[in-house]
Amino acid sequence: MAQSMIAVYVQTDGSMVEPTSLQLITKARAIANGQRVVALLPTSDADQTVATVKQYGPDEILVLADDRFAAATDTEIADGLYQVVEQVQPNSMLIPATVVGRSVAPRLQAKLQTGLTADCLDVYFDGDTLVQVKPTYGDDIMCEIICADRRPQMATVRPNVFQAEPAQAATQVTNVDFEFHPEAHIKMEKPTPIISSSANISDASVVIALGRGADNPQLIEKAQKLAARLGGMVGVSRPLTDHAEFGHESQIGQSGQSIAPDLLINFGISGATQYLVGIENAKTIVSVNTDPDAPIFTKSDYAYVGDANDFMDALLSSTRV
């Protein structure tokens, strides 16, 4: 019997490699335990993409070279992968849970008549079985899914849960035989990158929030400076929406935006329920308030009882670039 294989679908937009694909190569190598890690690479620019993928040390790269992969449809990609998977019969297959990955994978799954688990946060082997760990119903419940009898065992894996690490390996590069079948009745354009993702506080990774206790022009200006330095945005509680610079889109809370930043720093916010609802998903919450009994503190990881201005100045001076 041939050596067992983990295949990784490497997504490209023709010439650029999508980063999750590389993360999955690293992950596959980590759990391989003797299995070959093979990158399946549909590409319109073999030279450049092969060079990139090589740096992450898969045992083999199977190249599906065709200019039309610069703007291929989901169906065309699935069809190409299907032809290769049929040839090499991998034990399992990892696919980035990107939009393209999540669109291609089920079509491929239907062709292969096998199982597929979407949006995994982890995968590991239990013997020959790929255990696929995924959240269900938000992130409140996790489940482990297996595909006992059919092969390959397919999973899409969420971007950025694993780090891509460059690795040395004697990577074999093979141009595979396949036929590009152009799909009828559909015309797909090359993707257009979104230049500046129109800033939305609900997507911000750092939020500096101001409440009534921080309602003065100097503090607002400093908050904006701090937010700019941390690559974040300024949000406000309801009382500050009267200011011209803060509209409804800056308001945090039940009647405004729900936010989920990695870091939230609250200045002068007491913590009305309607505000607290909007910050439930923030990872780390720091709150500054003069009132030691302010409700906001019960929802905070770090509490500073004192003057907002002092704390802001201290933050600004220690984050100076």
Binding site: G115, D140, I141, M142, C143, E144, I145, I146, C147
Partner: peptide
């Protein structure tokens, strides 16, 4: 093809 082998609350 797939089965859920375990469900748990993290």
């Amino acid at each position: 093809p797939t089965t859920v082998q375990k469900v748990y609350a993290p």
